[in-house]
């Protein structure tokens, strides 16, 4: 096999592997979208409220929001 052919097969194989990995990554992101989750540091907010001299009202849904 010529040198050009070997280099070509190397590039092509690498490209196909990368395409496959990107495809799998995209499928994973589609099935587990990161963007929908909220990242709220509830304890930080409570501490900020306490620092302001107020009492944080413990609404029922802190636990759901934390998840």
């Amino acid at each position: 096999m010529k040198k050009q052919d070997k280099i070509f097969i190397l590039f092509l194989s690498l490209s196909f592997i990368l395409i496959s990995v990107i495809l799998i990554e995209n499928v994973y992101i589609t099935l587990n979208p990161k963007t929908i989750t909220l990242n709220i540091d509830v304890n930080k907010i409570k501490n900020d409220i306490k620092d302001a001299g107020l009492i944080p009202y413990d609404a029922k849904y802190w636990d759901i929001i934390k998840k």
Binding site: Q4, F8, F11, L12, S15, L18, I19, V21, I22, E25
Partner: peptide
Amino acid sequence: LGFTFLTVVLIASSFYFRF
């Protein structure tokens, strides 16, 4: 990963026409 792939394709394009 996307940038890696782009780099590979552009390098390959320097050897093989419109890789």
